[in-house]
């Protein structure tokens, strides 16, 4: 039970740290119907759930070494992996928008928004924020399954903060412009996340 409360206590920082993965996706789909956007959101949340469960299991298995989780070690690796993955997906999504170049056209052909949403969800879940560290330290004592379950409940708590994003209205008028801007932003974000934060680890 206190897992959910911990998740809720994460507050807007959950929104803040997951937003960069989700907002560009939403912006690209800004003109589509509500069903499609809810679908994308659902996939994103699934991705986050998957990665949270994985992190929970990991924390549980580390167990007594949970202190090692907190020190510059495991959480750094997870964070950088999250950035790198998220960056790649965003980059791919952004480049797919430009059909002028051959490479971009190939990417566009393979683009599957559902997969991107899921992958971004996974990446967002790996984004280690203070509530996650707290949850990890608590799950450390619970063993693998216990840790996974703890994180699943933690996910429920944090997702409550994501729901406002789904209430954004549909933009019909400027959809094309927004999409173009979003694609460029995705390229920039993707490059920054992948290269600077993920590979090089400079924050």
């Amino acid at each position: 039970m206190d897992a959910i409360i911990l998740g809720l206590s994460g507050g807007a920082s959950c929104l803040a740290s997951c937003a960069p993965f989700f907002v560009p996706l939403l912006a690209v789909e800004g003109g589509s119907g509500r069903a499609r956007r809810s679908g994308i959101m659902g996939l994103f949340l699934c991705g986050r759930l998957v990665s949270y469960i994985a992190v929970g299991a990991l924390a549980g298995s580390l167990g007594a070494l949970a202190a090692g989780f907190l020190s510059p070690g495991v959480d750094r690796i997870l964070l950088r992996a999250g950035w790198a993955l998220g960056g790649l997906v965003l980059l791919a999504g952004g480049l797919a928008g430009f059909e002028n170049h051959a490479l971009c056209r190939r990417l566009a052909a393979r683009e599957r928004p559902s997969l991107s949403a899921f992958a971004l969800g996974v990446a967002a879940g790996l984004n280690v924020c203070p509530p996650l560290i707290a949850a990890a330290s608590r799950a450390g004592a619970l063993g693998v399954l216990g840790g996974a379950a703890y994180f699943a409940l933690f996910f429920v708590g944090t997702s409550a903060w994501m729901l406002p994003l789904s209430l954004l209205p549909r933009l019909r008028a400027k959809a094309a412009e927004l999409r173009a801007v979003a694609r460029i932003a995705m390229i920039l974000l993707g490059a920054y996340f992948f290269a600077v934060l993920g590979l090089l680890g400079w924050s």
Partner: peptide, 9 residues
Amino acid sequence: GFVVLAGMA
């Protein structure tokens, strides 16, 4: 958009 979102993250 990049500056705002990356700043949030």
